[in-house]
């Protein structure tokens, strides 16, 4: 995972609530056994005017110029400003892979769906929750200020916009993994002895839980 410490990035607004992962990554483009190649189909049905073909190159497709991601002023944005309940619906991590591959490193919103939020943290994408009034105000500022940039400082847990500054919450484990670019599996496996002890104790009390799933 790509480490994340600080970011000074352009912001693009996506002013819709309840953006679901089907919209972020439509299912027809998920028929891949790889982790890459999803960025070009991010928000496919909103970004393009035609119907996409799975596996095909998108560079010649007609763009929907009303969609913020296609507008010149937001090119190369690395921060996506979202509304409430972003990432709801399906657990597909492909949605986050597409977001990351497209170039976003930070999502700002009031609330993210639980599974999506976790998936972001595992992929070097930082979802930041800010108060509704801050998010409202950022939507206004982004609209009014072409080229608006924000500075995100993960070690200090701060977002800065000119003179304004807001703190944000993140759990210390996710913060550590993001800063170091770690996946947490090795950290868990350092506790292999504890997992084995748990299994042994549990097997004594509830042996049927350890019956193999097979030959049913």
């Amino acid at each position: 995972m790509q480490p994340f410490t600080t970011l000074d990035g352009l912001v693009v607004p996506l002013d819709r609530r309840d953006v679901d992962t089907d919209a972020i990554m439509p299912k027809q483009f998920m028929k891949s056994i790889r982790r890459t190649g999803f960025g070009q189909n991010l928000f496919d049905s909103w970004r393009y005017l035609d119907e996409g073909v799975p596996g095909a190159d998108c560079s010649d497709r007609p763009l929907n110029l009303e969609f913020p991601l296609n507008q010149p002023r937001y090119q190369d944005a690395q921060i996506l400003l979202c509304r409430d309940n972003f990432g709801c619906g399906s657990s597909r991590e492909h949605a986050v892979w597409a977001i990351e591959e497209f170039g976003f490193r930070v999502l700002l919103g009031t609330r993210f769906a639980d599974i999506f939020f976790n998936n972001c943290l595992k992929n070097g994408v930082l979802p930041i929750r800010l108060a509704p009034e801050v998010i409202d105000s950022l939507f206004v500022q982004v609209e009014q200020t072409p080229g608006l940039r924000l500075q995100v400082d993960l070690p200090k847990q701060q977002v800065r916009c000119g003179e304004q500054q807001w703190g944000f919450e993140i759990d210390s484990h996710s913060k550590h993994c993001l800063i170091e670019g770690l996946d947490d599996i090795d950290l868990t496996l350092e506790r292999a002895g504890m997992i084995e002890r748990y299994e042994q104790q549990r097997q004594q009390r509830t042996p049927w839980l350890f019956e193999p799933v097979k030959g049913l």
Binding site: V96, T188, L189, A192
Partner: peptide, 13 residues
């Protein structure tokens, strides 16, 4: 439900 990173985490641990 879990994402793919957690599927790997779960398979491994």
């Amino acid at each position: 439900g879990i994402g793919t990173s957690d599927i790997e985490h779960l398979l491994a641990s």
